[in-house]
Design a protein around this nucleic acid. Sequence first.
RNA 1: GCGACCGUGGCGGAACUGGCAGACGCGCAGGACUUAGGAUCCUGUGGGACCUCCCGUGAGGGUUCGACUCCCUCCGGUCGCACCA
Length: 810
Amino acid sequence: MSPRDTPEYDPAAVESKWQARWAERHTNEPDLDKPARPNFNLMMFPYPSAEGLHVGNMFAFTGADIYGRFKRLQGYTVFEPIGYDAFGIHSENYAITIGTHPAKLIPKNIAAFRNQLHRLGGMFDWRHELATTDPKYYKWTQWLFLQLYKAGLAYKKRAAVNWCPKDKTVLANEQVINGHCERCNTLVEQRFLEQWFFAITKHAQRLLDNLDRLDWSDSTRTLQRNWIGRSEGAELTFETPAGQKITVFTTRPDTVFGATYLVLAPEHPLVDTLTAREQQAAVRGYQREAQSKDVVTRRVGDTTKTGVFLGSYVRNPATGESIPIWIADYVLMEYGTGAIMAVPAHDERDHEFATKFKLPIKPVVKGDGPLPFVGDDGVLFNSGDFDGLTCAVARKKIVAWLAGRGAASARVQYRLHDWCISRQRYWGPPIPIIYCDACGVVPVPEKDLPVVLPPIEDFRPDDSGVSPLARHQEWYFVKCPQCGAQARRETDVSDTFLDSAWYFLRYPSTEFDDRPFDPARTKTWLPVTTYIGGNEHAVLHLLYSRFTTMVLKDLGHVSFEEPFPKLRAHGIIVKDGSKMSKSRGNVVVPDIYINQWGADTFRMYLMFLGPFQEGGDFRDEGITGIRRFLEKVWHLTHEVSLTPGASPGMPGSPGLPESVVQKLHQTIKKVGSDVDGLQYNTAIAAMMEYVNEVRSAGCTDRRAVEPLVVMLAPFAPHVAEDLWEVLGHSGTVFDAGWPKHDDALAAAGDVEIVVQVNGKVRGRVTVPRGLSQEAVEKLAFADDSVKKFMEGKAPKKVVYVQDRLVNVVV
RNA sequence: GCGACCGUGGCGGAACUGGCAGACGCGCAGGACUUAGGAUCCUGUGGGACCUCCCGUGAGGGUUCGACUCCCUCCGGUCGCACCA
């Protein structure tokens, strides 16, 4: 067929027409109060960078949007909001770099993002757009802090923290990558500062247990499990001749008879009192050295062991032997008790240390390998009454035995640390706390929220470890809400991850200024039906959101404790094999492609690039294939609209070519299940195959084309809407309903059965589907080629797979 | 070092619970239409040969009537964690 009588496909015109219509007709604004079948389709909101939405964002949002649109076609009332994660160091640093103020920069960036998101054609409900930098939003971020504070889950302590000398702020452990700042890659230092923490470790076990019930990928759950890092073991107490007690944590109490020395972290509080006079100089020197390189060298995997003998001894509670005490930086103060019993025969690190410093190595477990034998299935020896027991059995008995003497207790230890939410920076929500000389720490009363971030010009951080807000006295000094005396505000702002730890709760309730989330709306829309986002947030954002929700549940604010029962992670779009970044110069600017090809083509192309959940390498060579496909559908549909005959409606088969009917039903089935599983690349391929079939059959029957337009709609919403209109419909195609397939029709017709001899394909026979084995075999044996390869031998065995193959073994 | 995932044409990628390897698309080649074609349409396209056949999913081995798929060893890559006691 030729496109002679049909209009040209002009994506720009089609797209602006439908974007305007969607707004006019409120197409994407579901009734939040009385939805028939609510479906909260959430995607991770973007950080509005100055560079604009990049290809990775578009990839993620398109994939999530297709899913939401598909659910809508299936009859769900889909709420698909969007917002901006606009606070944070990132924005602030960028503002500093280009010499502007974040409060000027961010609204501009948001406006640009909004424009791009509109052009992409997402099914966003713009009534519920939010930005974390809006006082109407962060009022409730501060409220959230207060709820945790009142519940005893927010506390302040002086702590060794990761300090980034370039960003001049504290980083959470999660934000330190190999001793470097995750943002600017600067070497991180250790500092001691007063910081606000959230007691996330109190919920470690629950956060771990709940993972089993979540519909998340195994890999994401494993990441969280490892991050929480549960290990079971025991605390053992070692006593000095002077009666001082040192507690160690170990997962291998069964090896206590092999503990030949003790090691403390250099910062351990008992180091001073345990150091013999003649060792003081050496110990102090080592402590200074350790502190200077602390978070840096100690964690970079340089395993050369260093340490210093304290000059004193403790008694091994199992053997009664006197063993030396050392300090070494391979023992970390933040984990366990900051002290270990060293069992050099059965621990690699201890073995290396003992070898270097010529400390005694005493094996107590028989095993296969050379020392250090670290296996868990050995049998004890050199262990007094416990000789001959397996490690697993001995472990319990030894703990019980030592516990009887007050020297042991079973203990579960987590790798997870409490969440440090303090940031000594400007661009974040001020932590709503006031310090009063008389009353102490006073939370800002909820009626006084928000504590507005003052619009100061001098917002740059300095090296003092104190937020820039402290320099602004008119803001800093405030009346104590309790006694009215002059008091001082907390000057730290909170971590950006707190902003994003509850935004999903805010979306349905953005119009309410007097509550963070409306109870009725929340009951209707939460938890989130499907959450789609990048795996780079597998630990931080997702763990913090889970924790926050859990706390809100305990406090009675919500009725569920897991915010994201169903999570799907998309892959990453790379360019030339590496992540896109400005410094590499391989950033793909999506706007150029949208200008040249249109949003529909670009959306579909991104999805056709590779499996959505794996991502892929961006190269634009293939985009023309998608455009050709849309052109074909465009012309086909216009041709159909000009063809008199069959009336609108879902297909029945009369008058349609059988091959088209069969392919249609197969396609509906495949596209539906593929989209449901986020396998967009194969769904697109299936639609292409279908179009090829319809065209080669010369079919211009609308019953063959209408379902195609509907299936296309989630991927290319603008052009699908236009074609739906061309087909004579007045409403939105998204009210059309997902087409239904008929398994019988999909399976109708003949099948080709492969005939193998000894596992090699030697022939094929075409038979009606469901033909009996006997009949198929008869046909198979009649095949010339099959006869030839059987060489007249009798079959030893025949393997038969219904409608698929016959394998003759001779 | 530990853990997870992955290696398929010139390229991106398909392949259900083991059952025709290379769907779909790009690119390429030839042809049609055309003043023209970087538009459109048609045909072909893993490699090889003595073109009724053989070889082919990183390498080697195994299980099976049959292996891209399952098992073992190795090589290469990506990501996460990284002295966590």
